[in-house]
Design a protein around this nucleic acid. Structure first.
Lengths: 226, 226
DNA sequence: ACCGTAAACTTATCGCTGTTAGGTTAGGTG
DNA sequence: CACCTAACCTAACAGCGATAAGTTTACGGT
């Protein structure tokens, strides 16, 4: 008999055999699709394999485990984020407007890829957040390898924001109190908006556009020299 | 024989039988403990049951499913949050300082209960976020029952923030542009700080205290009348 | 004091999950 | 043709959430 399992996959009859690189890319594509449409938990290795037209175990020849799929996808996401935040240095536009655009791009990109965003910025992979100090001050514990790598990638886009702010400070357009802290605050605001809308929907909030506008306005005014 | 399974539970020999209310409360206690120390996924019904000294299925006599445990815990969390944000109206303190304190309390409470916070504010229960509009504008879909209930509870603490800000606007201490938007922005900032520290640790950031200070400073300045 | 009944809890099992060990087949090289 | 390895498979494990149906315990009414 020819091992003709019943309802196999996308390509029922012929079972194709691909070189590693192609197969890897294909797995990544269908995995991202399933993660995005069904979520990380619901998208099982079996379903991913099924969509890819192979058996679940074949995935393990290309990726260490399910998390490895996630981190590979996260890498792509970060590349896109960096691209979205890399606005051409048309020095013609006013510098403050550039910061404004930076934050808008961040929020829009996050909302345009809500599930990747959640995977990347709102989950700590398998290792759970270790218990923190009871005063609420986290004792920065051992950071797993992949999380660290993710962090590096994230820092790249954060760096864009940071240097942007430093430039504005140098130009005297923003207060010089605490440039690094400013970048953190701007990021917190942007991330707060994105993650709140993702988890709770925008139904209970100020319309998203006005929300972004108001938030940016507050930030700008709040960081301006007195 | 007396059904003497090997290494049973906390109270090995005697198998106690509790009235529903007590058992329910006890299950909730151990479940919260396991959720907090090991995370929602890792804390299985079997482990919870084991810690409670009963079999897994007994839990289902008191809670519909695993999520019901979570929502019950979330309710307690929100009660604590509301309490933390209900500062006594010592009108003696300046009103702006009260808003400041409100945000500090929010962030500290969130960081003091990081895993409950994540469970409550950073996960959408089982149902995944439905695919959003491709322009990044969420199409507010059907909200599951429990999520809605969670939202109501969350709105209570948000309401405290909102009325606090409205009072400051009425007193002329803040701009009157968009009071509702201001509350959203303040919340986004607070939530952004908490969730970023929770998922990524505080290692890469401005020290948390300074971060809060700087953020609040920006918000205050940014909302003040020009 | 008995007994019925309902509450409290159990056993056994289902279909699912991520993952591993080890076997098989196809494609290209000598 | 023989071989070898990359690519893929089958079978299975331990654990998951959840259900159906059976058992034990406590308590209220007579």
């Amino acid at each position: 008999m020819v091992n003709e399992k019943v309802g196999r996959a996308a390509n029922p009859g012929k079972r194709t055999r691909l070189p590693a690189a192609e197969r890897r890319a294909q797995i990544l594509t269908v995995a991202r699709d399933l993660f995005v449409t069904q979520g990380f938990e619901q998208a099982s290795m079996r379903r991913i394999a099924d969509a890819a037209g192979i058996t679940p175990t074949a995935i393990y020849d290309h990726f260490a485990d399910k998390e490895a799929l996630l981190t590979a996808i996260a890498a792509d996401f970060f590349d896109g984020l960096v691209a979205a935040m890399t606005v051409p240095p048309d020095a013609a536009t006013d510098p403050l407007g550039l910061l404004r655009q930076l934050m808008i791009n961040y929020v829009r990109y996050g909302l345009a890829h809500p599930n990747e965003y959640r995977l990347v910025f709102m989950t700590s992979l398998s290792r759970f957040v270790p218990t923190l100090g009871h005063r609420g001050l986290p004792c920065s514990g051992v950071v797993p390898e992949e999380v660290a790598q993710k962090t590096v990638k994230a820092m790249q886009s954060f760096g864009i924001l940071q240097t942007g702010i430093e430039r504005l400070v140098a130009a005297g357009l923003l207060r010089a109190d605490d440039p690094e802290g400013f970048a953190d605050s701007v990021w917190a605001m942007g991330h707060g908006i994105v993650s709140l809308v993702i988890t709770k929907g925008d139904s209970n909030f100020t319309p998203i556009d006005r929300w972004i506008d108001t938030s940016i306005g507050i930030l700008m005014d709040g960081m301006r020299p007195r």
